[in-house]
Nucleic acid binder design. Sequence first.
DNA 1: ATGGCAACCAATGGTTGA
Length: 259
Amino acid sequence: MKIATWNVNSIKARLPTVLEVLKTIDCDVVCLQEIKCETDAFPYLEIEELGYNCAVHGQKTYNGVALLSKHQLEDVVKGLPDNEGDDQARYIEALVMCEHPIRVGGLYLPNGNPAPGDKYDYKLKWMDCLLSHATELLKQEDAFVLAGDYNVIPRDEDCWDPAVWRDDALALPSTRAAFQKLKWLGLTEAYEAADGRAHEYTFWDYQGGAWQKGHGIRIDHLLLSPQAADRLEKVEIFKKAREMEKPSDHVPIIAELTD
DNA sequence: ATGGCAACCAATGGTTGA
């Protein structure tokens, strides 16, 4: 089965592009971030036509996440548990009822710039909350995937120029340390495990011809529980999405697991 | 010295993102 994550940067502004990409990558499960619409405004009909069930945690103007699945979705959770006071729609989770059911959490981790500051504090608090939730999920000893826009550049070789990103909230040592903590819990970063090549990216800024110059960063990730990691076959970054009409600044990253 | 690009809401400019 194939699980994808993709920050679409507004689903209303580029619905034809989104539908085209979804048809092409043909995944079982897709986690979408930055849908930038309220739950009721989600284009359910168009996406259901592609064979997907939709669970949506929307928000006006900013953020907003959705889970699309060709299998039944059960036990939908909106918002990161025990993150009281967080009014931003950044997390959605459900149990995907395929042959071997798998729990999937879709997340849009805060950017955190400028750092230091309130926004960076919010990012680190959010990461700590995600760590707690992952700890709880691991106790169940079942297959699960936490996929999304982590806004984390894990290694220097995951960006085109480390000097440019050194003091950025996406690459600061505290950010990388918080991401590393998730891995130390026992989660496997799918790209690193299945491929791991340097200078492969999932985001290119719209500005300054970043795509044409190859000035990207790898910030969209899938973290797998041990039971899911055992099933990992390959990972693909769907770069073609960045060449389409009205592209998102992110492209999908897809993990393929055995059924 | 600063914008660059894109989307949003609101309104012909300000905010946010990464």
